[in-house]
Amino acid sequence: MTDVREALFVARTSDGRTVRRPLSPHLQIYKPQLTSGLSIFHRITGVALMFGTMLLVWWLVAAATSDDAFALVSALLHSWFGKLALIAWTAALWYHFCNGIRHLAWDAGYGFEISQVHASGRFLLISVASLTALTVLLGFLAL
């Protein structure tokens, strides 16, 4: 046994036989849906934001270190690759931010009807697209 959770799969039928409990089918079994797609994307953006956060720390440390160190980060962020990374970071941040609020609403008990879930999902996509476009626009205007 390599995983202690295997023990939790051990069950007994009413006639005493030991059986392995069934495992619910994994992602690829299901038809792609708005609900599951948005949920998976919350995790993907969460993991992606790790890189953005590490970049933020690099930027802060460089600012606290020297003009040269800060100039290096600035040059990297102003390159086409840096701009692309910042746009991706902005989109991921707005997605995780908006969908996070959606999750908090669910945690508080609101919006569970499937029609509401679909409506908030569509509103999420529109919000993320608008907020990302606005932020990127303001960023480029400030350059």
């Binding site: 600012a63 020297s66 003009d67 100039a71 931010f97 350059l143």
Partner: peptide, 28 residues
């Protein structure tokens, strides 16, 4: 943490946008 990060993140995005292209002295 998520709830606290809602206002902080909005403030952060506003702050970063106000410092686009700024030199180190501005950040300091």
């Amino acid at each position: 943490a998520a709830m606290a990060l809602i206002p902080l993140t909005l403030w952060f995005i506003y702050s970063i946008l106000s410092m686009v292209g700024a030199p180190r002295s501005t950040v300091a």
